[in-house]
Design a protein around this nucleic acid. Structure first.
Lengths: 203, 203, 203, 203
DNA sequence: GATGAATGAGTCTTCATTCAT
DNA sequence: AATGAATGAAGACTCATTCAT
């Protein structure tokens, strides 16, 4: 069994990560034992440990990978030309998250909740998540600026705060859909549209 | 030896719960050992177990209690007469959560994240959270109706979806403020206000 | 099972240490598993760990205890009044070590060899042994001075070097008796006596 | 593909043994993993195992080799003509051991201590060491006889016991210099000389 | 009623050894 | 012959829970 090719190595890592993902999701981060992951990966303990040196590392990899996946999923939506309205964009984002999470063992929402919780005591993980959300919010802020420029939104609004609100809507959708289970992707978009409808009184 | 009085019993339960809360919050649900809680409560193992029969039960109690606390904190805001505008109300809610969480060892946001994560594998906990959020959302829906009635919001909007969006904003605020740490209570309100500002184009 | 008395605690510690001692001696430090010790101590894993927090600590305790025991065994011999001749004293020391080591499971010589080996990679243990041997050598040096004073040995000899040689004889006896197994306590004394016999030629 | 030449084989064995030696010495026998040795030898796992079938075997070889080396180092000293006095000879032996041990990764003293410890549970190793020490002591005994013959020592002394004492001095020097670290080669010789100085009183 | 010492199943991780390529 | 990835048994240690006193 001589030196393994880089692809094979990557494939093995993916195989292990996949096993970890599906266990984590089903049972939570801490209720999942390394043995569960080892069995799910169909490898031996030693093999798993030769790819990921600890459970901690595996958790980190699982969460950051899901973050990267999310990034790839949502990136195109944020870059669409011409930019759809805020409500439409929110609808597309929540829709994409939902659609992606249908795939067995790949529920981004569940991993997100587990990751947030873990981030409270894992500094490295917290930093990884923090920079991901900050970067994502930055992209939202750009979109807000473009809306301002194209007069979909008023000109002199606080772009950053709007981005924070939009991100809050998305994250809040994730929580609700995982906990109450009765939120459809379009609900948030619909709600937002209603909130923004012009009426006589100012707020 | 007469039985311990009911007040005493309740006081003990509170004392244990308080200890559990502060441990959970500092170290997370699973990294907290019963021994940590026992030591923090300044009682013996046997005593703690006579009030809460298992760690699971203690987690459930801790999360549920925090939910009740949240309810008592936010209830008055939702009942205010006359009802402030949506943005103002969101600002008050996020503000109340933040203010409450300043108190050492009582960060509602951290407990919330921990609870969501745990709810994935603890059916009982999930149901408790679910019914709390549904009830809270119901109250938001009532508010939405009143806004419709008072023409702060248009008449024929989907009240439920608006409530979902408002709840999403609040939950998303909690996540962001716990993970990125750079969200002030008013940011969300400000962002929402901007999103709702009338411009020429419709969405 | 309320608070245990101090004596009981000490007894438990001794019970565990005894079990460790006999395992270590039979199988060596590293070939002995905690499970071996746990079984030999007739306690549970948790109980053993509540008295000694790690195997390392148990090794340290076993070795330092044997050092203390050795100290108590040899102290009286070094203090004898009037001081016997060097050869007689060496004979008594090697004799005491041998006699003590007859007791099943308490072979000081075996523990000594194990300890020396372990001291190479355990700083704490090395320091403990070092200070023990230094202090023991100091006592030997005092004896040498008294021999000088009482003209059993010449007056202006290097006391410290003589002490080093005497210690070397004792330690070398321990090694030989453990490895070759054919050294009686008196052999060393006899050999030393012969080496010191006056002959015509100087050395 | 022709078989590998015998020289090459021997060179490989030496290369592996050297790697093992330096690892053992630095980290101890049990803390050294086969992987450490494999990496230090710059060969593959398979290669190492094709030369030495087990770690046990490697330990045995490492210790035995060091014994052989010691033999070659000390042989000439014991054979010197004319034989120097006992104290001078002890000084030369301890000096040679010290000088040899200066070389990085070849500290005979450390290996000796490790070997003694291991010999307690490895019968094969114990026998190898035993026969080495017995043979070495035999050579010392010959020297003692020659000293008797040449009247450096008295005629009718117990040669064997004197040899045991001399060996004890050497072994004890090794232990002290490894543990206390404050023993120079000449100290033992000096001490022995003092012990043997004639005084009025007999012992 | 209370105490806290004891239990022991279960966790993560290591590492000597093998064998498919 | 050589390689090094894979194996899996075994080890140290933890911690929720119990129950003798």
């Amino acid at each position: 069994m001589p030196k393994i090719s880089d692809e094979k190595r990557a494939a093995r890592r993916a195989q292990i990560l996949d096993a970890a993902w599906s266990c984590f999701q089903r049972q939570g981060l801490h209720a999942t034992t390394m043995d569960d992951i080892i069995r799910a990966s169909e490898l031996s303990a030693g093999a798993v440990y030769s790819y990921y040196p600890s459970k901690e590392e595996l958790i980190l990899a699982a969460v950051t990978t899901s973050l990267t996946g999310l990034s790839e999923l949502l990136g195109p939506i944020l870059q669409t030309e011409p930019l759809p309205s805020p409500a439409v964009m929110i609808g597309r984002i929540t829709g994409a998250i939902t659609a992606f999470s249908q795939r067995e063992g790949h529920d981004l929402r569940r991993i997100a909740l587990l990751g947030w919780s873990e981030a409270q005591r894992n500094e490295q993980l917290r930093l990884a998540m923090r920079s991901f959300y900050l970067s994502f919010r930055k992209q939202l802020e750009d979109a807000v600026k473009r809306w301002s420029d194209s007069e979909v939104l008023p000109a002199n609004i606080p772009h950053k705060d709007v981005a924070k609100s939009l991100l809050a809507l998305i994250l809040g959708f994730v929580v609700q859909s995982a906990i109450t289970g009765d939120v459809e992707p379009d609900d948030i978009a619909t709600g937002l549209r209603a909130l923004a409808m012009p009426v006589l009184q100012g707020w």
